[in-house]
Every structure is written in structure tokens, then in C-alpha cells.
Design a protein around this nucleic acid. Structure first.
Lengths: 219, 219
DNA sequence: CCTCATTGACTGACTAGTCAATCTATGCTG
DNA sequence: CAGCATAGATTGACTAGTCAGTCAATGAGG
């Protein structure tokens, strides 16, 4: 509902005139939320960062919550579309997962603040925004699970591991990777981002163990 | 520092008399934090839940923050000790990871509220408690990474996957599993918990893919 | 002069943390 | 053993500050 507050028509009209204040507020909010956290920051911080008056935030958004809702939904929808697209293609499951991992890592590379906000304030906020956007979040898991299910049906993936579970593990591994970057626990930089894309997929698809005969007794 | 506020001696003395109010406050806080979230709840909620006066919370704890700090450190220390123990034993890496997964899942089974609080309010709270306890959290990752490194040295695990990274993926998969239960996205119940223990390890160690060398045909 | 954008001072509600008073257990003293 | 002292436990009304959201006024374009 929040995403529809300002009709596309008006947003377009704005572009002709001065800068789009609504967009400036959203962009400022990303920075403020990322640096201070949603709860710790004040609405005035967002207004100041955006260079607009306090009240203007409430002209474009019904509440502080709605600012975050908007940011999340904007980005999450893009991700869901992307996964659906990948899902529909005719490629090996590993490549599909690879594409998803790439997209998420690139999202982080492109706008780390936004991804930090989405993950920290929504996706993992079980008592607040995570609940309100649970349906959206769930969709991502389900789409990934579908990929796994399909791969199992054609024999590429083991049938013994529940698809919904595999989806959680895969997504969890990716998010933890971003968390590592967010917390400064993993090294940043383009080559690390690229390597990370491959590493998650290799870990989850190929496994950590060496494929010794029958993988029964290591060593 | 918070953990040491009440000397063990006095805590023991308390046991002789009435109930340990400090403990009651901590236990109540777990329930309140789990149900409402740290930020959303008031200190009076904790006091009410514990059945004590508001001021008593501040007799035992310097601040609302310190209550959560105490809860986290108490439990996290137990987990670190457990991982160190496992780490020192002479067993295959897969079994070690299995033991860690079991411990965490059992922790959740035993006290879901506490684990929810630790994960949601600390481990994943990049802008608040996650930062203050970063050193503790990091230790867990490093210990797990050590297990992976050792396994790689003896050839049981592939050398191409960075150990620290594998540790993040493994831990991330487990936490995501708990998140699934917390959000009500994965089925609860003893058999599911048991299965989950095996599933994470099988996914991360064995991988999702079927072993191409005609090892198995699922179904 | 109408509409929408923009401003920022102000209000109303909320809550972490304080503190002075009261209670309770224990032990000491004469 | 009664009486008293001391220290810690317990109480909850109160303070001081914060901040989300409101609104009346002003500005600008058509």
C-alpha cells in the first residue's frame, strides 16, 4: 500500500521540475537507517540528511515505518522478479542458484547500505518488519525451493534433502555472507565478491567434503 | 562485566531463602524480549512479568541493555565452551559439525525464547548489540573455521573453499533454520528438529548435488 | 486564486532511569 | 533473649528527556 502513495504520473511530473524530494528522502533514509539503525535514528535525521524540512517526510510518507516499508518492497520486488525469471529459464539448477547468488552479491556491491537495511531491519527482524513482510520474504524461499524440487525431480540434486530446507540453507548462507561483510568479518573488494558468489554455490551444491569413494569414511 | 554484578557467594545465599529475584527477572526478560522484542518492550513489562517492582530491575542491572547483555553472554559462553570441547576432540570433521548443529538445535528445542532473543536481538543486530558483542560472536566463527581448516589439512574437506567462509556458510545455514522456526516457516516438533540436525550437515558437507560418478540414483 | 509542495515550531504520549522510603534478615550487645 | 544496628532487598511514584506525528502558515507554479 505504501508503494502506491505517489502515483507514477506525479512522480514523472516531478522529474521535469526540481529534484524529486520523495526520492531524496528515501535515499537519505537508506543512509541513516544503515548507519544508525531504524530504531536509533530520528525522523529529523532523515530530513536533515535529505536536506528537506521535517514535515516533508510526512507529506510523502504516512509514518517512519512507511519509509522503511517502501524501501524494502521496492527492492524485494526486484529480487522476486529476478528469481522468477531465473526460475523460468531452462538451465541446470546450479546455474540458477549461481544467478541468484550473483544477483544478491551484486546488489550488495551496488548499494551496501540498502542491503544492510533490508537484511538487518526487515528480513531478520522477527518482531517488527520481518513479521509485516513475512509473505514477501516467504515467496523468495518458496521460489528457491521450487528450483531445488525441480532439480531433484530430474536427478541433479539428492532427493533426501527437503527442498524447502535446502532453500533455507542456501539463502541463509548467502545472507550470512552479507552479514560477514556488514559486520566487517569478511574481506571486502571486487575479487572477494566474485569469489563469494562461487563459494556459496560450490559449498551448498558440491559440499565441503572431498568426493572420496562413497564419501563414507573421510581420510 | 555485567555477569559479575552479583557474586556467586551471595547468589548461593539467596538460594537458601526465597526465590532468586535476579534470576526471575532474567527469565522474565527472555519471555518479554522474545514476545515483543527488545525495543518494543518496556522495563515495566519485564518487572510485571517477573512479578517484582520496577525498581528492582535497576537494583540488579545497571540498565535495560545490561539485562540483554547478561542473557546473551551467559548462553554464548556455554556455546563457545562446547565448541572448544568438540574442537579438541579427535573425531572426523563431519561429526564435529554434527555436534555443533545438534547443540544449537537442542538449545532451541530446550529454550526457544532464549535462542530467539540471542539471534534476533544480538547475533543479527548489526547496529546495536551485534556490535557490542562482536568479539564473542567472531570467536564462534573462528572456532568453526578451525575445524574446517583441520579437515582440509587432512584431506577430508576440499581445500578450494576458504575455511572462514565455509564457517560462515555453515553457521548461517543453522541460524537460518532457527529463523525458519522462529518465523513459523518451518515445521516444529521433535522429529523435525532431529532431522534438521542431519540436514544442515549433509547439505553443507555432502552438498545438494548427486555424486556424478554414478554413486547414487535418488528414488 | 487554486493546488500542491514545503516549512518547522509545537504537542502529546511515552518510558528509561532515579531515589527516598520501607521492609527483612542477620547478627551483635548487654 | 529483647533490643538495636546494619546492610541489602524491595517498592513505586516521580523526573527529565525524547521523539513521532500534527498543523497552520508560507511559497511557487499554472
Amino acid at each position: 500500500m505504501s508503494a502506491g502513495r505517489v502515483p507514477a504520473a506525479r512522480a514523472g511530473a516531478r522529474a521535469k521540475n526540481g529534484p524529486d524530494k520523495r526520492r531524496m528522502i528515501l535515499d537519505a533514509a537508506v543512509r541513516v537507517f544503515a548507519n544508525q539503525g531504524f530504531h536509533a535514528c530520528r525522523v529529523s535525521d532523515i530530513a536533515d540528511e535529505a536536506g528537506v524540512a521535517y514535515g516533508l517526510v510526512y507529506h510523502y510518507f504516512a509514518s517512519k515505518d512507511e519509509v522503511l516499508d517502501t524501501l524494502f518492497l521496492e527492492r524485494w520486488d526486484v529480487m522476486l522478479q529476478m528469481i522468477r525469471q531465473v526460475d523460468s529459464e531452462q538451465r541446470p539448477a546450479r546455474e540458477k542458484l549461481q544467478a541468484i547468488a550473483s544477483f544478491i552479491v551484486d546488489s550488495y556491491r551496488h548499494d551496501p547500505d540498502l542491503m544492510k537495511v533490508i537484511i538487518v531491519e526487515v528480513t531478520r527482524a522477527a518482531n517488527s518488519f520481518g513479521q509485516t513482510h513475512l509473505a514477501q520474504i516467504r515467496q523468495a524461499y518458496e521460489l528457491i525451493a521450487q528450483i531445488v524440487t525441480a532439480a531433484q525431480a530430474e536427478g541433479a540434486f539428492k532427493g533426501e534433502i527437503d527442498a524447502e530446507f535446502a532453500a533455507m540453507a542456501f539463502y541463509g548462507a548467502i545472507e550470512q555472507m552479507l552479514t560477514g561483510w556488514i559486520f566487517g568479518l569478511l574481506p571486502l573488494g571486487d575479487e572477494h565478491f566474485e569469489r563469494a558468489k562461487w563459494l556459496v554455490v560450490e559449498t551448498v551444491c558440491g559440499g565441503l567434503e572431498t568426493t572420496t569413494a562413497g564419501n563414507t569414511l573421510p581420510q
